[in-house]
Design a protein around this nucleic acid. Structure first.
Length: 576
RNA sequence: CGGGAUGUGGCUCAGCCUGGUAGAGCACUGCGUUCGGGACGCAGGGGUCGGAGGUUCAAAUCCUCUCAUCCCGACCA
């Protein structure tokens, strides 16, 4: 492609909205433009990168035996009512009516549609296993879209669905997808981890997330330094270490009520009693579809809402407004405690080890001191309810856990029969018995993968595209457009790139050299070729890798080394 | 949905507090000079100051409402 003819509007200045590197660079490199909150147009340069990721996804999905389909983006409400997600999915589901006032939604995911398709098509175990995928625009009406393509409302996603005869077969499908995902992200040149994850609203009982490591990532993952345990922080557990609890003599003073004006936070209470926050029992009210409950954890720990939700077996969980807690429960937020409340109390497994502790008195302005587990807590049920910290011990091998940040680019789930049950998708097995299809579903955020790649591969000058997803593999800079011989050579070289099928961006613009260098760095082509009058006289062309600070010179009369370089880069990229 | 902030040429922002002629840089057009790391000069084009209402002789500026966007917490590829 000739730069002079390409719509590639690079920006010197950064639009104010861009917070993270990938968003900033994608705007500056003329890859995307914002139309509305979380909704972007893909410009030619951005679309090329996107298509490269899609192509890798297609190759690896096909290789794993999946077949590509394309399902409708607009879906009838009936299907979602049948799966009972019409009410359940919430406001993320973009709903609208057609001219006949029939309810529809714009698909945020396609379990319903694919299951509906399959239930009409698949009758026999002989037709299984089946694995279908599509690459399509989805819409999720996120409350807070941000970071450009990282969290858009409209986004391109590869979603795949597998159908098997039983759980064992479904596991095989799942493992095969897990392997394919590893190949996909490796080929995209990403440093990633496959971690155990919460399966969220999609449902199901077993899932892995593929997380690209990046400090700007929105997800945190815990991984073991020694073994291969890795989990999303939402799900991560640690080995419980029992410590000696200071014994409380039976004749020791009972819990005592103390006036603690203006001490609502754990820190304030700890300061008031001159004890460490670890000695404060932090009590919080949660509300779920099962009603209110209280969760008690040590004051220096953070409640893991996902664990609470799982422990309760609730469908949803949130922290109610303090006003509601006061109105409906008569409890003063800031002075909550587990003693004498008449709603279920969930206690973290570390609380019994706190010894003598302080907690709220359920009376505004008062706390209790001298509280102890054995004597004072009415329910003795405990569970793991806190967010793991770095340095805690691996639940598998006992080595230390580390916490990293990352970007979730893929997620695979074993769904089981959740949707086939609801939608009555069955087949006849070998014995002529009717059975429900066992499903799996597999997603990849295509745009997010591009964003993650940039997040992980950039410097202060711009993008450093991994070769496989680079929109152009090379930038050819003609620094002397007015020199006929230089231009003639560049033209010849450009043609040879075209013949060899290596995507090149030929900068033939009437611009000063500085502009061309800056744009080449910003756009991040892996290889930069520079030819100017001086070099031409010396019979050399300058070759520089974007990822390297040094350059080398190749003779103009023998460019074989150049083509070998591209062969090597190409090979690296398909090797897995 | 809560909490905070911002809306002024395509982009980044100043002007607002203290009402009185809409500004700068970048980008764009033309001409000239320049030409290996985002050049310079001259001349231009482009803005209902987010929208509506109000106060006032007079509103980008003050008031009310509204819309949009961004940032901090719950959703997810």
């Amino acid at each position: 492609m000739r730069f002079s003819r390409m719509h590639l509007p690079t920006l010197k200045e950064v639009p104010a909205e861009a917070e993270v590197a990938s968003h900033r660079l994608m705007l500056r490199a003329g890859m995307i433009r914002r139309l509305a909150a979380g909704i972007y147009s893909y410009l030619p340069f951005g679309l090329l990168a996107l298509r490269n990721v899609e192509e890798i996804v297609r190759q690896e999905m096909n290789r794993a035996g999946a077949q590509e389909v394309l399902l409708p983006a607009v879906q009838p409400a009936e299907l979602w009512q049948e799966s009972e997600r019409w009410d359940f999915y919430g406001k993320e589901l973009l709903r609208f009516k057609d001219r006949h006032q029939r309810d529809f939604c714009f698909g945020p995911t396609h379990e319903e549609v694919i299951t509906d398709l399959i239930r009409h098509e698949v009758r026999s175990y002989r037709q299984l296993p089946l694995n279908l995928y599509q690459i399509q625009t989805k819409f999720r009406d996120e409350i807070r879209p941000r970071f450009g393509l990282m969290r858009g409302r409209e986004f391109i996603m590869k979603d795949g669905y597998s159908f098997d005869v039983d759980d064992a077969a479904a596991t095989i499908s799942y493992q095969s997808m897990r392997a394919a995902y590893g190949r996909i992200f490796s080929r995209c040149g990403l440093d990633f981890r496959a971690v155990e994850a919460d399966s969220g609203a999609i449902g199901g009982n077993f899932s892995h997330e593929f997380v690209v490591l990046a400090d700007s990532g929105e997800d945190a993952i815990a991984s073991c330094e020694k073994c291969d345990y890795a989990a999303n922080i939402e799900k991560a557990q640690s080995k419980f270490v029992e410590t000696a609890v200071p014994e409380v003599k039976s004749d020791s003073a009972a819990a005592e009520t103390v006036a603690t004006p203006d001490c609502q936070s754990v820190d304030e209470v700890a300061a008031f009693f001159k004890v460490s926050p670890a000695k404060i029992a932090k009590s919080m009210i949660f509300e779920s579809d099962l009603g209110f409950c209280m969760v008690v954890v040590p004051g220096d720990r953070e409640v893991n809402e996902f664990k609470v939700k799982a422990e309760l077996k609730a469908n949803w969980l949130e922290i109610p407004a303090p006003g509601r807690v006061a109105d409906e429960l008569g409890l003063p937020v800031g002075y909550l405690g587990p003693l004498g409340v008449d709603i279920p109390v969930l206690v973290d497994r570390e609380v019994p080890q706190m010894g003598v502790m302080v907690c709220g008195a359920n009376r505004a302005g008062y706390h209790l001191k001298g509280v102890c587990w054995e004597r004072d807590f009415s329910s003795k049920e405990i569970a793991d309810l806190v967010v793991v910290n770095a340095g805690e011990l691996c639940p598998r091998c006992g080595a230390a856990l580390q916490i990293d940040r990352g970007i979730e680019v893929g997620h695979i789930f074993k769904l089981g029969t959740k949707y086939s049950e609801k939608l009555n998708a069955t087949f006849l097995d070998q014995d002529g018995k009717e059975k429900e299809l066992v499903m799996g579903c597999y997603g990849i955020g295509v745009g997010r993968t591009v964003a993650a790649a940039i997040e992980q591969n950039h410097d202060e000058n711009g993008i450093k595209f991994p070769y496989a997803i680079a929109p152009f593999k090379a930038a050819l800079l003609n620094l002397d457009m007015k020199s006929e011989e230089v231009t003639a050579f560049c033209e010849k070289l450009y043609q040879e790139f075209l013949e060899r099928g290596i995507a090149v961006l030929y900068d033939d613009r009437n611009e000063r050299p500085g502009v061309k260098f800056k744009d080449a760095d910003l756009l991040g082509m892996p290889v930069r070729l520079t030819l100017g009058r001086k070099g031409f006289k010396r019979g050399i062309i300058e070759v520089k890798l974007r990822d390297s600070s040094t350059s080398q010179e190749f003779p103009l009369d023998d460019l074989e080394p150049l083509w070998s370089l591209f062969s090597e880069l190409q090979a690296d990229d398909t090797r897995i």
